[in-house]
């Protein structure tokens, strides 16, 4: 599970460098994001721009991470491709997360 974290003050951007977040990876994904998210972070922005596909297990893992980090840290999303965005909208989870176009939109100070 290839993830990369960058801190920008109280914001942390975690980029998912995998083509898929699916049933084969969901549990490892959840554990790794939780480990990478600093306790001090106010926001964790999950950068999904390298991710082509999320299935319902991957979606469930993202929701689980959001719940693990709350309330001290809010989980936000950016860089969703069309297929990933479709899974979020069909399941109405697009109403649950703050969703940004890109890392630069989500974290104005970031040079990603």
């Amino acid at each position: 599970m290839n993830l990369r974290a960058h801190e920008f003050g109280t914001d942390t951007v975690i980029s998912v460098l995998e083509p898929r977040i699916d049933a084969a990876l969901a549990i490892r994904f959840k554990d790794r994001v939780r480990d990478l998210a600093p306790d001090s972070a106010k926001r964790v922005v999950l950068d999904l721009s390298e991710v082509d596909f999320v299935d319902s297990s991957g979606l469930g893992a993202i929701v689980a991470v959001m719940k693990l980090l709350a309330p001290a840290t809010s989980l936000e999303l950016c860089g969703m491709g069309t297929t990933v965005a479709k899974v979020f909208s069909l399941t109405r989870m697009d109403r649950v997360f703050a969703i940004h176009e890109s890392v630069a939109d989500a974290v104005p100070g970031a040079r990603a």
Partner: peptide, 18 residues
């Protein structure tokens, strides 16, 4: 139940919808 922020149960819903 979307209010409970479910972590599962989406599978058949997606299949039926698509």
């Amino acid at each position: 139940n979307f209010a409970e922020l479910p972590e599962g149960g989406f599978g058949w819903m997606l299949i039926h919808t698509l």
